[in-house]
């Protein structure tokens, strides 16, 4: 892939992350008082309002793609041997898929899973 496509991805995820993280920070302390924002009941009702679950999923994907692509850039700048370059690219994809899958599991179970005490 042309490196400029990956850089465009980095810029777009950056702009989205700025917007989504801003909303996240506001939700956690300003819109709700902090103690309310982190209470089980509040989070459950927010998750079950579909829009918030979609917001969290978007935040998850955007931040992890941006973060791991950033690490990929740093690692490419650090070493330049052919095997290193190949494993950095493969590792980046694996890291993004694994962490997004793990985070998505939380979101999906929070929305659809049966609640327990």
């Amino acid at each position: 892939m042309r490196e400029s496509r990956l850089m465009l991805l980095q810029y777009i995820t950056a702009l989205l992350a700025v917007a989504l993280v801003a909303v996240h920070l506001l939700t956690q302390g300003i819109i709700y008082p902090y103690s309310t924002a982190i209470s089980f009941g509040t989070i459950l009702s927010l998750y079950r309002n579909g829009l918030y679950a979609i917001f969290l999923e978007a935040l998850l994907v955007v931040v992890l793609v941006h973060g791991f692509n950033g690490v990929r850039i740093i690692l490419h700048e650090w070493r330049q041997t052919a095997p290193w370059s190949r494993w950095v690219d493969i590792g980046t994809v694996v890291a993004i898929v694994a962490t997004v899958a793990f985070g998505s599991k939380t979101v999906i179970l929070a929305v659809f899973g049966g609640a327990s005490g």
């Binding site: 089980f40 939380t106 929070a110 327990s116």
Partner: peptide, 14 residues
Amino acid sequence: SFFVGGPIGTGPSQ
């Protein structure tokens, strides 16, 4: 992830 019972949880768990 502990909101749904931890890494191997199955649903919201208070």
